[in-house]
Each structure stands twice: as structure tokens, then as C-alpha cells.
Nucleic acid binder design. Structure first.
Length: 346
DNA sequence: AAATCGTGGTA
DNA sequence: TTACCAAGATT
């Protein structure tokens, strides 16, 4: 039997029951695909359910404030996905008369939708036979066909896309794409793949040549830069200073305390003593927060200052004055969320 | 083409 | 502990 038939039969019997399956609303398919970019199903499912509950239609999402969407996205990471999700909802709602684009090429024009997501939506929601090439598919194809190309090179994706176009099931393209991904996620895993229970183990080239553990080949590893950030929890009575991140940097459009960033670990506290003439800042917490490409060394410092100084610091940091009661309304990156949960519980 | 953009689970 | 990487997109 063909790869095609075997994997679809396996999928029909073994597919997981997930909340975005067995319905074909392109809005919900899109929403699920954006949430699942670079994100495990276990982590994304709760977010998907909350988004569907809060924004059941594209129109409702389009009419929401970006800040509300970022708040609901808080903790999921890669926040450009949330910003683009909102932008595209607005675009479809106002420029495309609320009608979701229904083919691969039109979908790809939308902000936040690239090759993979356009193919996933086109195949699942509109039955178009275009292959969705994600990390799972790279791994399954590389092993099954013994492909030794470097998957970190962009042109390799074109090779896999063309291969996928040739073998994708013409009658059930959406199920085919999902079947390959499901196989990669549950059987053909990066380490310790369960080849014994693989539906295509009779014809897998890597298995026959005992090369499963060597494939796929991925060359580049990214380098991590260190940053030293000092978060200043400055309060006056029940008021606190927070600042929206508007620079081209991580966590764009999220909020945090006023920050002093220093070039090294050592050169630290003397720097900001000058900001405070009444009381010293107390060190509340130190932690290392890992991003995919940065290692953030974060310190939280707290000071309760008088009114005059509060205003001065508010201007100094170009920050906003808010009351502690409303502090949890704003979207925050993970380190801020954790700090606020412990110091300002609600 | 290579860098940038989060967070959490796993070995 | 470090390294990898997960239903990737953008610049």
C-alpha cells in the first residue's frame, strides 16, 4: 500500500481529538494554526479555547482592542503572532468584506500567514491540495525518503514543498497534512521514535538503513546574547509606574516597570541611586529568563517614594501612573507576570 | 541569508 | 545544566 493510504488509515484510527478538529470554520482553523506556530499542542490548547470563547467570530476579534488580545495571549510568547492576528482580522473584516481568502496564494498575502499556515488553512478549510511543511513534516519526510539536505537552509523547504505537492492526497489534502504532522508528533518523534508502531515502517528508507537517529540534518545553532535588566517597582501609595514597550525589541506593545539596562553584571547598583534621594531601592528578586536568542539577567528593585519624587521619576522614565487595583489589566511578559503575582496578588 | 521574535518540556 | 525544539513568520 502507498505511503498515502497507509498514513490516512492510521490517522483515521489514531488521530487525537482536538478542539479545532472536525469543524471547518476558516476563522477557527486560522486561529488554531497561529496559536500552534512553534508551540506545543499541550501549551496552545487552553489559549485556543479561551480565544474562541472570548472571540467566537472574526468580526468580534477585529473589533477588540489590541491590548485585550495581547492580555489573552499573555504567556504564550512570540507576541507578533497576536499583533498580526488582530491586524489581519481587521483587514479581512474591513477590506475584504469579512470574507476569508479561500486559496493558498491569497492566504499567503495576509500578515502573519506564511507558507506553512497558508497551506494548512487552504487544505483543511478549503480542500486545496497544497502541502503544509512544518517541523514534523521535515522530520517525517527526511526519514522516510532518506533526505540528507540541511533543513536549516531556506531552499530545502522548497525541495520539501515540491516533494509534498507530488505525494499529497488529492481527495483528502487536509487530512493528509494533519496525518503527517500527527505522525511526526506522536510516532516519528525527534528522539526515541516509536518505529515499531509506525504505519509506514515497511517502506521507511531511514529505518532500513538504520539512519533514523541521524535525520533530519540541521546545521545552524543560534547564539545567545546576555542582557542585564533592572526592573524598578516604583510606587507612591496605591500608585505604580508601568511603561509600554514601544521600541524595536522583545515584547513589543507589552508592559513592564521602568527599566535600566546595563552592559554588564557587575557595574550595577550605583547607577540608579541618583534617581532616588529619599529611600533606597530594595532588591526583591533576581532571576535568569531565557528567550530563544537572549539570556536575560533580571533584577527587581522596589521603592516607595514621595509624591514629588514619584512625578519626577514618572517623567524621567516617560512612564504611566496607574493604580494598583488596575495593574492586572495590562499585558505583561512572563517575568513581570510572575513578579506581579507574588508582590501584587489579586 | 541570517537574525529576530517567547515560553515550556525533555533528554 | 545545557541544548534542543515545538502545527513559523518577518525583515
Amino acid at each position: 500500500m502507498s505511503f498515502n493510504s497507509l498514513i490516512l488509515i492510521w490517522f483515521d484510527k489514531n488521530k487525537r481529538n482536538l478542539p479545532w478538529r472536525d469543524q471547518f470554520d476558516p476563522y477557527k482553523i486560522w486561529l488554531s494554526e497561529i496559536i500552534l506556530q512553534q508551540t506545543r499542542i499541550a501549551q496552545g490548547t487552553g489559549y485556543y479555547n479561551r480565544f474562541v470563547e472570548n472571540y467566537p467570530t472574526l468580526k468580534s476579534l477585529a473589533e477588540a482592542d489590541e491590548q485585550m488580545i495581547l492580555k489573552l495571549w499573555q504567556g504564550l510568547g512570540y507576541y507578533s503572532r497576536a499583533r498580526n492576528l488582530h491586524f489581519t482580522a481587521n483587514y479581512i473584516n474591513s477590506e475584504l468584506n469579512g470574507e476569508f481568502p479561500s486559496n493558498f496564494l491569497e492566504l499567503k498575502k495576509l500578515k502573519g500567514i506564511g507558507d506553512y499556515t497558508a497551506a494548512a488553512i487552504a487544505s483543511i478549510a478549503f480542500n486545496e491540495p497544497v502541502p503544509a511543511i512544518d517541523g514534523n513534516v521535515f522530520r517525517v519526510f527526511a526519514r522516510y525518503f532518506n533526505i540528507e539536505l540541511d533543513i536549516s537552509q531556506p531552499k530545502t523547504k522548497t525541495y520539501f514543498f515540491n516533494l509534498g505537492k507530488e505525494i499529497i492526497d488529492q481527495k483528502r489534502p487536509g487530512d493528509f497534512n494533519q496525518a503527517v504532522m500527527e505522525l511526526g508528533a506522536t510516532i516519528c518523534t525527534p528522539t526515541n521514535p516509536d518505529c515499531m508502531n509506525c504505519p509506514v515502517n515497511q517502506s521507511c528508507e531511514a529505518l532500513a538503513k538504520k539512519k533514523v537517529s541521524e535525520l533530519p540534518i540541521k546545521s545552524k545553532k543560534l547564539k545567545v546574547t546576555h542582557r542585564f535588566l533592572h526592573f524598578l517597582d516604583i510606587s507612591n501609595g496605591d500608585q505604580v509606574l508601568i511603561k509600554k514597550r514601544t521600541e524595536k525589541d522583545v515584547w513589543l506593545n507589552l508592559y513592564n516597570f521602568p527599566i535600566i539596562e546595563l552592559p554588564t553584571e557587575e557595574s550595577f547598583p550605583s547607577k540608579f541611586q541618583e534617581f532616588n534621594t529619599t529611600k533606597p531601592f530594595r532588591l526583591m528578586k533576581e532571576e535568569v529568563h531565557l528567550l530563544s536568542h537572549q539570556k536575560l539577567h533580571i533584577s527587581f528593585w522596589k521603592a516607595n517614594v514621595d509624591q514629588e519624587e514619584f512625578i519626577r521619576l514618572q517623567k524621567e522614565f516617560n512612564s504611566e501612573i496607574i493604580s494598583i487595583e488596575e495593574i492586572h489589566q495590562y499585558p505583561y511578559p512572563k517575568p513581570m507576570e510572575k513578579y506581579l503575582d507574588s508582590e501584587y496578588p489579586n
